[in-house]
Design a protein around this nucleic acid. Structure first.
Length: 258
DNA sequence: ATGGTAGAGGATCTA
């Protein structure tokens, strides 16, 4: 039996957060770390620093916005930087096999505001990606779907459910899309374990969001049934959010005993 | 209804 640690972190610029990422890798030694919002062209991606830290890396980036990457101890295989159904220039999805685990790294669109064009794009994106995940689940036994979902699944994942009721990130159609994805045969690994109340993964930079714990749990690690029997813990690490110049998101980490 | 902050890039856009 060996412990495998799989983590996700929306870093909001890999350039600004590189030192924090390297420190976090050293401290936690994850086997897999999925990143979102790298905001970097592939030609500028700091792969040398990541290799020097003992990690392989695959990435799919663009200028200014979005961008995803997967860091791993073992080299990624069968990499997909999009899904066939989704003809989308936005770099929001990266799929790779790490050893015998299929890793699906998502940066789900924010949606801006319920009823907006971007909200419609989010729901359409979710529908198409969920359909692709169904295909992946037929081909692979051990599947992890993780990333910044930009969806708080339930009111318990929201600091002030009344204020957020039917707002973007918490609306009924977004939550339905989340549970439709779970219905393919995935589990929200965080909720497979007893957790304290009011644990969140994102806090707005504005209005002292972190200090007041005005947060949402929108970063998730979903696991297929073949992995859920082996899950030992799933935690949110708030420590990096306390640093100077933090990302607005905290890392989430799953430990498996395989 | 708006604004507050952060990042990229060089005026806004996205979140």
């Amino acid at each position: 039996m060996t412990d495998i640690k799989i983590a996700t972190w929306n870093v909001n610029s890999i350039k600004v957060r590189l030192e924090q990422i390297l420190n976090w890798l050293k401290e936690h030694n994850p086997d897999i770390l999925a990143l979102q919002e790298t905001k970097s062209l592939d030609e500028n991606f700091p792969m040398d620093a990541i290799h020097a830290a003992g990690y392989e890396v695959t990435f799919s980036g663009q200028k200014t916005y979005n961008g995803v990457a997967i860091l791993s101890k073992s080299k990624a295989k069968d990499v997909l930087s999009g899904v066939p159904l989704l003809d989308d220039p936005q770099r929001r999805i990266l799929i790779a096999s790490i050893d015998d685990i299929r890793v699906i790294n998502l940066y789900i669109p924010n949606g801006q505001e319920v009823g907006s064009e971007k909200y419609a794009y989010k729901l359409d994106w979710l529908k198409k990606v969920t359909s692709h995940i169904e295909t992946e689940l037929k081909q692979h036994d051990k599947v992890v779907v993780l990333g910044d979902f930009n969806i708080a699944p339930k009111d318990e994942d929201v600091h002030d459910p009344d204020r957020w009721q039917d707002k973007v990130l918490c609306s009924g159609p977004e939550r339905k899309a989340f549970f439709d994805m779970l219905a393919l045969g995935l589990e929200d690994s965080f909720r497979n374990f007893p957790q304290a109340e009011k644990l969140y993964s994102w806090w707005d930079y504005r209005m002292l969001g972190f200090r007041r714990n005005h947060g949402l749990r929108i970063d998730h690690i979903l696991i297929s049934k073949a992995l859920s029997n082996h899950a030992k813990s799933c935690i949110i690490d708030k420590e990096p959010r306390k640093l100077e110049r933090p990302s607005d998101h905290a890392p989430v980490m799953l430990t498996l005993s395989l």
